[in-house]
């Protein structure tokens, strides 16, 4: 009777080990499935993979800002220049807190002076 009891205790212990192992395997699997599904959702170029589309990678700066600055520099009237600068700043200041506006402005100024 004692031997039978000992054997069943051993069996319970062994079964428990496998049950725990199975649970761990399942949890890891679910975690990885969930992870890969989350990663799959980042396959939106532009929203997530910014390095591919950022203006710094492609053209160094925003093409529309460059055009506006070119217009600003080609103006002859100071009043018009001031008014336009205010408008450009109001559009781009919120857009680019990193100072891309100032950087692009410097670049365009150099380009414009060379062109002249």
């Amino acid at each position: 009777m004692k031997i039978l009891f000992k054997n069943s205790r051993g069996q319970i212990g062994e079964t428990l080990t496998w049950v725990v192992a199975t649970i761990i395997i399942l949890v890891i699997l679910i975690f990885f499935i969930f992870g890969s599904s989350l990663l799959g959702k980042t396959k939106s170029v532009g929203t997530f993979r910014e390095s591919l589309t950022s203006s710094k990678t492609t053209l160094n700066s925003d093409i529309f800002l460059r055009k506006s600055l070119f217009t600003y520099l080609s103006l002859t009237s100071n009043d018009q220049k001031q008014a336009l600068e205010k408008k450009i700043v109001s559009i781009y200041w919120d857009k680019d807190p990193d100072g891309e506006y100032n950087q692009t402005r410097k670049e365009i100024l150099i380009m414009y002076n060379k062109k002249r």
Partner: peptide, 24 residues
């Protein structure tokens, strides 16, 4: 079988989604 099914699900959930390039 469970692990194999899990791997198939993982691959499908990642590679099954297409790249969305409409923004660009």
């Amino acid at each position: 079988v469970i692990v194999a099914t899990g791997i198939v699900l993982m691959v499908n959930s990642f590679y099954g989604k297409t790249y969305d390039v409409r923004d660009v």
